[in-house]
Design a protein around this nucleic acid. Structure first.
Length: 581
RNA sequence: CGGGGCGUGGCGCAGUCCGGUAGCGCACCUGCUUUGGGAGCAGGGGGUCGCCGGUUCAAAUCCGGCCGCCCCGACCA
């Protein structure tokens, strides 16, 4: 492709609205344009990369026996009422009506449609296992789209679904997906890791995320470099435990205007961890619950929700006052109202000498013995872990990192098949619900993560496997006939060699060409100019290494072909190595 | 949903406090010169100042309402 006739509208100046690297590179590099918040047009250059990523996904999905579908993106809303997820998704789903007034929605995911086909078509245990997948646009009315393509309201997802006769069969389909995912991300040139995860809205019995470490990510994960354990902070715990302390009689102390942990800790001269945070939340039915975590740590709401078995939200100040008869800042579990569910963090078990709010304005209690003074409903892992705490598996210090979620796989079980009546007859003539799994990959995030992890100040560098083109041929001066002739020849040769080539044949100054080349970040840049020509060579820049090598012009095409092939072969080999986890 | 910032030619911004003919750089068009890291000179085109309403002789500027985009937070008592 000739750059002179391409639509790759690069910008000279940094776009003002882009903060994260991938967003900035994509806007500046003429790869995307914003239509509205969280809605982007993908321009030809980026689209080529996305197509390559999708092709890799297809190959690996087909390799595990997946069959590609194309489901509707527009669904009748009554189907979603059958599973209850119309309500569960709340404002996150786009809803509309057709001309007859029937409620419709733009699909945020496709379990319902898969379940609908399964219930009418899958009759017998002989019809399974099935692996169904599609690569399709999803719609989610996110509360806050952000970070360019990392969180949008319309995005492309590879979603797949397994239909099985048993939990054991599901485990197999799930493992096949884990294997395919490892191969996909590796072949796309990404350094990923896997983490245990929360199932959230999907429900089910187990799930796992595929993440790429990167500062722009929205996920936080606990990782142990020593034993390899990794988990999303929403589920991962540590062995951290505080010393129980000395037992003493409960005592109420005057703490005027001392509301925050920091204030009270200073005022009473008690370490923050011994100050028990007493947090009032409301569950999905608007019933109050209380969570207790050490003052040194934060409550993790995802953990809190799974402890209670319901979504939770922080109580409003008035609700706190009504429930506890004490103002926020001074509430506590001692003398809490009858019937209030009290969930305490595991690290507080056996606490003998804690302090917390006294349920009376301007007062706290000290020497709280949790077992003696409080009716704890249950102990659970509730706190967000800190860097350096001990790994639950091996005891080594863990790291807490930010990461981009690339893929997520779920063992759904029978939640959807039961709700939809998707059953089959087994070999004993028994009617059973189909056992389902569901698996997703965010396609744009593959490109975004590649940029996030590989960009420098000048632009990005694509992994060869998903690079929009392999090589950029840069003709330094289009006013020089010899340069034009040599670069045209090389361009043709490279295409004959099967390389994908972007030829910068624009009649503009060299500086502008070099800057665009750096920005667009194709794996190889071949410069043809007076200087090189006089020496009979082409200057090949290996973008990721920032290394330039002189190659005789006649050999340049073969040299590039070899470089690209070697990189892709390297990814493929690595995929073979990592596929089994 | 709460908080903050921003909205002025295609892009990046100044002008707004203190009302008085809408500006700068880049980009674009024409010509000449130039040509290995975003050229120079000369000439030229392009803007409902986010939208609606109000105040005023006069509004990009003041007042009210709305919309949009970006960032932070979705919480600690």
């Amino acid at each position: 492709m000739r750059l002179s006739t391409s639509f790759i509208p690069t910008l000279k100046e940094d776009p003002s609205d882009a903060e994260v690297v991938s967003h900035r590179v994509m806007l500046k590099g003429g790869m995307v344009r914003l239509l509205a918040a969280g809605l982007y047009s993908y321009l030809p250059f980026l689209w080529k990369s996305l197509l390559k990523a999708m092709q890799i996904i297809r190959e690996e999905m087909n390799a595990i026996g997946g069959q590609e579908f194309h489901f509707p993106a527009l669904h009748p809303i009554d189907l979603w009422d059958e599973t209850g997820r119309n309500e569960d998704f709340g404002d996150d789903v786009f809803r509309l009506k057709d001309r007859k007034g029937r409620g419709m929605l733009l699909a945020p995911t496709h379990e319902e449609v898969v379940g609908d086909i399964a219930r009418s078509e899958i009759r017998s245990y002989r019809d399974m296992p099935q692996i169904w997948y599609q690569i399709q646009t999803k719609f989610r009315d996110e509360p806050r789209p952000r970070s360019g393509l990392l969180r949008t309201r319309q995005f492309i997802m590879k979603d797949s679904y397994t239909l099985d006769v048993s939990q054991a069969a599901l485990d197999h389909g799930y493992d096949l997906h884990a294997r395919a995912y490892r191969r996909i991300f590796t072949r796309c040139g990404l350094r990923f890791f896997e983490a245990r995860a929360s199932s959230g809205l999907m429900g089910g019995t187990g799930s796992q995320e595929f993440l790429v470490e990167g500062a722009s990510g929205e996920d936080r994960a606990v990782v142990c470099d020593s034993c390899g354990f990794a988990g999303n902070v929403e589920v991962a715990g540590t062995q951290w435990q505080m010393a129980p302390g000395e037992e003493a009689p409960l005592e109420e102390v005057h703490t005027p205007e001392q509301r925050t942990i920091e204030d009270v800790s200073k005022f009473l001269d008690i370490p923050a961890e011994r100050l028990v945070k007493s947090l009032v939340y409301m569950d999905a039915e608007d019933r109050p619950v209380m969570f207790l975590v050490p003052g040194s740590h934060d409550l993790n709401e995802a953990k809190a929700a799974s402890a209670v078995g319901s979504a939770v939200r922080p109580a409003e100040a008035e609700e706190v006052l009504r429930v506890m008869s004490a103002p926020a800042g001074f509430v506590g579990p001692v003398g809490a109202p009858e019937g209030l569910g009290i969930f305490a963090d595991l690290s507080l078990e056996g606490l003998l000498d804690g302090a917390t709010g006294a349920n009376r304005g301007d007062y706290h209690v000290v020497h709280m013995n949790l077992a003696r003074d409080v009716q704890v409903t249950s102990y659970a892992d509730l706190r967000t872990v800190h860097e350096g705490e001990a790994c639950t598996v091996c005891g080594s210090a863990v790291r807490v990192i930010t990461a981009i979620e690339m893929g997520h796989i779920f063992k759904l079980g029978t939640k959807y098949s039961e709700a939809l009546g998707a059953t089959f007859q087994d070999e004993n003539e028994e009617e059973k619900p189909i056992v389902m799994g569901s698996y997703g990959i965010g396609v744009e995030r593959i490109a975004a993560a590649a940029i996030e992890t590989r960009a420098d100040d000048d632009g990005t560098t694509w992994p060869s496997s998903i690079a929009p083109y392999h090589v950029l041929v840069l003709a330094v001066n289009m006013g020089d006939d010899e340069v034009v002739k040599a670069s045209e020849t090389l361009y043709e040769e490279m295409m004959s060699a099967g390389l994908e080539v972007l030829f910068d044949d624009r009649d503009i100054r060299a500086g502008a060409k070099f800057n665009d080349a750096d920005l667009l970040g194709l794996p190889l840049r071949v410069t043809i100019g007076r200087k090189a020509l006089d020496r009979g060579v082409a200057e090949v820049l290996i973008r990721i290494e920032k290394q330039t090598v002189d190659v005789p012009i006649a050999e340049a095409a073969a040299f590039c072909r070899e470089k690209i092939d070697a990189e892709i072969a390297g990814y493929n080999q690595r995929a073979d190595e990592v596929q089994d986890g």
